[in-house]
């Protein structure tokens, strides 16, 4: 219940700032409070602090721009992957800020997120929306950035239990890939089920959350990790 209060505090803060899209660290915090694993990360605006703290996380890392105005970070050069040395880190940090300012001059940069770069694995997408007829609904898809192309997604209406979550996974045409294709070890289905059930609980607890994306969720043999979180709040609170 403490988690619930903390989440509501984050949501309220965003709403009082007249925003409906959470910035990455806010969304990540909410996920962590609901036991959804995310990569180690921190946020700063100070290059010196960044260089000092990046060692805690360990290379390789990812840099991500944080700005309430930027929803699709990669479109404006706001994500740089796989930085392996301190020297490269310095250079990329400056480059990231310069690119974003050039491509999106009106955006207010509120921070840079430094995140541990997770090893490549099967990419899933976990999402949630509030459907007009069915209310909060949970989505699972496969294919990372190609999800839209494959259109291999399936839905359940929240709340879901572990059996629903397992059926969601088996409902995907590509679910075989989780059993370990091409000699790779199978993914840990239980970790994916945990994320799905936790997202369902999250949607049931916070009715101000309208849409949510965990994309990608990387599935490993012993765990799963939500690399990027996006949360969008209801805009028509109280009706329009």
């Amino acid at each position: 219940m403490i988690e619930m209060k903390e989440c509501e505090a984050i949501i309220q803060k965003v709403l009082t700032e007249d925003r409906f899209t959470m910035i990455a660290n806010e969304a990540q915090q909410i996920c962590n409070l609901h036991n959804i694993p995310t990569p180690k990360s921190f946020i700063t605006m100070d290059l010196n602090e960044a260089i000092f703290r990046v060692k805690e996380i360990g290379f390789p890392v990812v840099l991500k721009i944080i700005s309430p105005q930027i929803l699709h970070k990669s479109d404006v050069g706001g994500v740089i992957l796989d930085i392996r040395t301190e020297e490269e880190f310095r250079f990329r940090y400056e480059q990231l800020i310069a690119d974003v300012i050039r491509l999106e001059p009106t955006a207010k940069i509120t921070g840079i997120q430094i995140q541990r770069m997770m090893p490549a694995s099967v990419e899933m997408i976990v999402g949630a929306i509030r459907d007009r007829q069915f209310g909060p609904s949970i989505m699972l898809g496969i294919g990372g950035i190609f999800t839209e192309v494959y259109d291999d997604v399936s839905f359940r209406v929240a709340p879901i239990d572990r059996i629903d979550a397992l059926n969601l996974i088996h409902g995907l045409k590509g679910s075989k890939i989780l059993q370990g294709a091409r000699g790779k070890p199978p993914a840990d289905i239980n970790s994916i089920i945990n994320i799905l059930v936790n997202i369902s609980d999250l949607m049931m607890e916070h009715n101000t959350i309208s849409q949510l994306d965990l994309n990608p969720v990387l599935a490993y043999p012993d765990s799963a990790c939500a690399v990027d979180c996006r949360i969008i709040l209801e805009q028509n609170e109280g009706g329009q």
Binding site: I125, T147, F155, Q211, L212, D213
Partner: peptide, 9 residues
């Protein structure tokens, strides 16, 4: 428009 989930739904 706002989320992947929305556009896939």
């Amino acid at each position: 428009a706002l989320s992947h989930t929305g556009s896939l739904a």
